[in-house]
Design a protein around this nucleic acid. Sequence first.
RNA 1: GGGUGGUUAGCUCAGCGGGAGAGCGUCGGCCUUACAAGCCGAGGGUCAUAGGUUCAAAUCCUAUACCACCCACCA
Length: 921
Amino acid sequence: MEETLAKSYEPKSVEEKWYKYWIDRGYFVSHSNSDKPPFSMVIPPPNVTGSLHMGHALNNTIQDILARYKRMDGFNVLWVPGTDHAGIATQNVVEKMIAKEGLNRHHLGRKAFIERVWKWKEESGNTIINQLKRLGCTCDWTHERFTMDEGLSRAVKTVFLTLFKEKLIERDNRLINWCPRCETALSDLEVDYEEKNGSLYYIKYFFAQDPSNFIVVATTRPETMLGDTAVAVNPEDKRYKDMIGNELILPLVNRKIPIIADNMVDKDFGTGAVKITPAHDFADEQTGKRHNLAFISVIDRKGKICDPSPQKYIGLDRFEARKLIVEDLKEQGFLHKIESYKHSVGHCYRCKSIIEPLLTLQWFVRIKPLAEKAVEAVRSGKIKIIPEQWENNYFKWMENIQDWCISRQIWWGHQIPVFYCPDCDGDKIFITMRENQKDTSRLTGTYYDFKKEGLSFEKIIEDIDYYLILSGAKPIPEGENCPRCNNSNLIQDPDVLDTWFSSALWPFSTLGWPEKTKDLELFYPTSVLVTGFDILFFWVARMIMMGLKFMGDVPFRDVYIHALVRDASGQKMSKSKGNVIDPLIIMDKYGTDAFRFTLTALAAQGRDIKLSEDRIEGYRHFVNKIWNASRFVLMNIKDYVPQAEHMDEKNLSLFEIWILKKLNQTILEVRESYESYNFNNAASAIYKFLWNDYCDWYIEISKLRIEDDAVKYILWHCLITALKLLHPIMPFVTEEIYSKLPQTTESIVISSFPVADEKFISKNIDEVDHFIDIVRSIRSIKSEMNIQPALKPKTSLFIEEPSKLYIKDFGKYVEVLARCELAFSDKKLEKVKGAAYAYVSGVDIWVNLEGMINVSDEINRITKEIKKTEKDVEFLSKRLSNEDYLRNAPEAVVEDDKIRLENFREKLKKLNDNLNFLKEL
RNA sequence: GGGUGGUUAGCUCAGCGGGAGAGCGUCGGCCUUACAAGCCGAGGGUCAUAGGUUCAAAUCCUAUACCACCCACCA
């Protein structure tokens, strides 16, 4: 085999070529019939609207490293890819599109709009998938899923139904976070809080009995006063104690409201008196419930003031209303004062609009019972979160978890599988379910008398004049009638489920659940989940709860939480800041391998990544270095056919043993690093081996013995092994080189991952390290004395210690690597005129500079060296004279110190002798 | 208000109990036939501050300061 490499590496064409090759050969496809141990992961499904950003790039690079590593290491790997339908985000995208045609979704109607979204999905939803391929991801594309595809929809319905049946899902009228722009409810997690400079308005509320007296309350949201139903004070507050139970007249509205006592009030904040608006504030909702206050909604779903407010405010936007109300209060003498005040305000995580707490009818998951088991799974170690510090965060959140509002008033998503009959009247709810696909019988079911059963949403039922029918795994067929009144006009609940509801099922729904599939049996629980911490609660926690609930087992054994990618100055990347680095541009510019390596090298556990292009460029040089080293190897081994017997120890010189030791240490380290998710460590170990050991020393040395088959073999062997270690991080360039090397299998993707050979690791080969020190020493003298590198000064070595005689064998290597003309002296050279001196453990080195030496330069050089050595000697002798140290430190450490001290003393003595000699001149 | 992480060379970051490391940048010298996207050499740090534990601390503990982030019913 004779192949050569192009002068330089061209990532673009190579990457395309190999990705296609891998796909064609089906390397990424998992096997349901295989003796190999399974290794499985599910991708955190990117939004179908998405385009690859740095977060995806890091996340998927890490997963791909694991997938490739495990595949090479003999596992049956399944990495499930897919996308998320991303309810609000996707709906927003398509709404923007049709807005260009002057339309909104209501013009189209629900059905047509959804068709439009599907069409958009078919046309553009593949962007991110293609970008993942570009990144080199080895997902099993035959397993690709979408959170709204048929199977997953079935899973969603089944889960909904089961939870409903078990009374873990309920419908209730509660205060929820409402986005007036998206016109939908949001869960607590979907609200981003931001510090804002606002004002604190102090308003006078006059007593009903005594119109000359008033209480001052402070609020940041004066417009909500229209819905006030009380003023609360702390029961311990002396100022107000006697007023509790009195009534106040609500300004502008002229409604009477009571003064109540509640411990939630902080005596020292504001005036110590708080207006209570149960229908528009979460804290007030609790207070309102405790005191049985009326809930009066004065803001509607569009964020406008509504009935029952004074006529003049109705229809005004909440912020316009605020202005007007403050003006009116001022005019009518109710405004006490305004202070500027900084507080945090909730914003919609999709559109950034300010959230309005609204009282609405929504579906909730009663999540506490599910959370308890999920906490236990982590506490008991069934799930390991890495890095461990995140476990605390997880526990904190799970232990304070609130009911999960799962209904959204949008159109794109899993429509809630509940049907109402508008013709029946309802003090009862009729529930029917189809639990399996094949059930085509007429709807029959059970009446649940919720009043009798005392369910918490009983009060709601009175508001619904319908019967409630839950459809099972199968949608209710067209033309199905109400089982009670035979009405054929069943109405499905118009709301859709929170996107995260379907994501929570991802680890098992993608494997075929609720069917009992082979995939589930083989690959569930998945081995590891790789994700960013930003969705620990959104997603990870919920998957754990759902997995435990429906599979009876954890969804994954390890959760590896990686950092966030930030820009070079540590800012979060965002379009509005304009600091986004586009991974696709980076891949075009530097190649995918350099990019992936950069992410990996920077991906230290528990620390955010500050990404700068300089860094990527630096690692592109590394790609180039590997490329060129490989060129060297290919050029030199030519038509040599590697044969294992050339690696017999009898054929190997110390150099071969040395590089094999380094290689095997690297294998060990890389394996350990991959196994423990210390990817940066693996990257740096390979980098050091390839560049600093293999290229800088072994290749240079090998040039002198390139005719030796053992050398050729070791060059080949080390290169191929290092390529395999590196392949999970840099898939493309390693495959390209691998394919050109002789004696390789059809692809590095399916080659076997190297196993360290203890035999070489335990080898003691100080000789080569000693040799390297000598070469460095001579180079240093030449450089510091300003000798042209091309000049070869006469250099004499005197080997003082017989145990170091092996250096003689290294003579020609010293000559070439240090560029000098070497001679071994049989006797000690006391003083050599015109030569610079160095001492390297047991060896005197004289570099003859043939009159070019400047005595004062040499004195300076040696003086510097002496100072350094003196420090060493001082440090060590001080430590070795400390009795406590001698008593307590491990013996090996002490022994090592003793030897080092001896060496330094010897060196110091030699250097001083020489300094004295120089001074005599 | 509660919590987590960070503070190490000019910059970006590893190291997390045994004499301070890497990449980039800087300085000096080299086109040495794999690589100038390179090679060789050099300089540069009381490891945020103050205490403590230890024979030994960048590393463990306790405070403090500053910088990030997360959580919370901050009226």
